[in-house]
């Protein structure tokens, strides 16, 4: 049974998409990636986004991550219309409120784990010693105490993803956007990563939006949104949580 969640307007609405469309190209070559998305995500939610390739879920994630802007419709982040922000203002929004975890880890090569974790704090202008302390705490939180000076090349995939998670949470973001974080990991490492995300959601109340193909991973979320052909097909509470 499908219950729609999106129509409930919460006063804590952190993320709000109103009739968002995204069109790539122009004229006859135009490709509609999103055909009108309405979505509310409240503070503290753990949302899994699923759907086949080309269903628009990655485009939607890029918009949620303020890396891209809607062609039409509005994206309100804490009531601010992101579509009207400049490139630099969106960068500042990412800097202060968002954390990213990618499928391909996206760590800086030949740069130690701790320096990777410190990077977002560098752009925030945090003094060096504070930065180091925060990064050490974040690495400890993902279970990588003692691995601080290792570079990504010296770490396993699971460890690299944990460094990436530490980098995402070190700034204490409002939202953590995870784009297939377990896509390159085996099932044991995947479960580790998911448990970690679950813990951050629980303990720190970080809102998590997770894109995944894997139903087992989506099962960690409290709410599952399925995309199909540029629209939201289903939006339901996770049965296991009920």
């Amino acid at each position: 049974m499908k219950t729609t969640f999106s129509t409930q307007i919460s006063e804590h609405s952190l993320i709000e998409l109103q009739g968002v469309t995204k069109v790539y190209g122009t004229g006859s070559a135009a490709m509609k990636a999103l055909r009108g998305i309405d979505l509310h995500i409240s503070q503290g939610e753990f949302v899994a986004v699923m759907g086949p390739s080309g269903s628009g879920k990655s485009t939607c994630m890029n918009i949620l991550g303020c890396l891209d802007t809607p062609s039409n419709g509005a994206y309100l982040f804490e009531g601010v219309d992101v579509g009207k922000l400049s490139r630099d203002q969106r960068a500042l929004l990412r800097r202060h409120y968002l954390g990213f975890v990618f499928q391909g880890f996206n760590l800086l090569n030949r740069t130690s784990a701790i320096e990777n974790v410190e990077l977002p704090l560098v752009y925030r202008g945090v003094p060096a010693h504070e930065r180091r302390e925060s990064a050490l705490r974040a690495l400890e939180a993902v279970g990588l105490k003692g691995w601080e000076t290792h570079t990504p090349g010296e770490l396993s995939g699971g460890q690299q993803q944990r460094v990436a998670i530490a980098r995402a949470i070190v700034t204490d973001p409002k939202v953590l956007l995870a784009d297939e974080p377990t896509g390159n990991l085996d099932s044991a490492r995947s479960r580790e990563v998911m448990e970690m995300l679950d813990a951050f959601n629980h303990e720190y109340g970080i809102t998590i939006v997770l894109v995944t193909h894997d139903a087992d991973m989506a099962a960690y979320a409290k709410r599952i949104i399925r995309f199909l052909d540029g629209i939201i097909d289903t939006d339901e509470e996770n049965g296991k949580m009920l």
């Binding site: 996206n106 760590l107 990077l119 977002p120 752009y123």
Partner: peptide, 16 residues
């Protein structure tokens, strides 16, 4: 390019 992408994604401004 990838490094630049990472930096921009986590909040580096164009001028940074």
């Amino acid at each position: 390019t990838r490094e630049i992408g990472i930096r921009l994604a986590i909040g580096a401004l164009e001028r940074d």
